[in-house]
Computed example of a mutant assay.
Amino acid sequence: MAANKIPSHQTEDVLQEIRTRKAEVKSQIKESADFIKTTTHKLFTPPPQATSKLGSFMNMVDQGLAVYDGVMMGMRVARNIRRIFGKRR
């Protein structure tokens, strides 16, 4: 059986291309991870404390809307689960 003989300079070129591509992919992964980290940090940090009465009122309204939205989403999820698995009586 004839052995596949590849010249060594071609092998080194291919290996170098693989190394550079690997470094590029690693940097892209790091950028994506940093973006995800900052986005989740922005989403889950509490809002800044209000210094005026209007600001604190707006914070209360915002929290009330968030609670309402959460309850409505929960009701939709529960309704869909009941639809999938059927009502138990």
Rank of each mutant, 00 (worst) to 15 (best):
R89Q: 13
T39I: 12
F44V: 03
I36E: 10
G70Y: 05
F57I: 08
Q16R: 14
R19V: 11
A66T: 04
D69Y: 02
A23R: 11
K22L: 11
N80P: 02
T11C: 06
G70M: 09
K22P: 00
Q16D: 15
D62M: 05
A23W: 00
A66Y: 07
R88I: 06
G64I: 03
M1R: 05
R83N: 04
E17I: 04
L43Q: 14
E12Q: 07
A50N: 03
D13W: 07
D34W: 04
K30P: 00
P48F: 01
Q63L: 14
E17Q: 04
S56A: 15
K5A: 05
D34R: 04
F44Q: 01
K53R: 10
R76P: 02
L54M: 14
V61L: 05
L65N: 05
S56H: 08
Q10A: 02
Q28S: 09
I81D: 04
K37S: 15
I84K: 12
L43A: 14
S52H: 00
K30H: 06
L15C: 04
E12S: 06
V71I: 08
M60Y: 11
G55R: 02
D69S: 08
K22E: 14
R19S: 15
F57Q: 13
S8F: 12
I36S: 08
V77R: 13
T20S: 11
E17W: 04
M58E: 13
A23F: 01
G86W: 00
S32Y: 13
D62Y: 03
V14R: 07
E24M: 03
V77K: 07
I81E: 02
G86Q: 01
H9M: 13
K87Y: 00
I18K: 03
V67H: 14
I29Y: 05
I29Q: 09
M73K: 11
E17T: 09
N59P: 05
N80K: 15
G55Q: 07
K87Q: 03
R82T: 06
P46R: 02
G55Y: 02
A23P: 01
I6T: 05
D69H: 06
D69Q: 13
M73L: 11
L43E: 12
E12G: 01
M73H: 14
G70D: 08
K22W: 13
G55T: 04
N59M: 14
V67D: 13
P47Y: 00
G64R: 01
Q16G: 11
F57Y: 14
M72H: 15
S32A: 15
A33D: 13
S56P: 07
L65A: 03
T11V: 10
G55H: 05
M75P: 02
A78K: 08
R89F: 12
A23G: 01
R88M: 09
T38N: 06
E31F: 12
G70H: 13
I81C: 03
T38K: 05
K53G: 14
Y68L: 10
K37Q: 07
I6F: 03
S27G: 08
V61S: 00
G64D: 03
D13Y: 07
V77G: 05
V77F: 11
E17L: 05
K22I: 12
L43S: 05
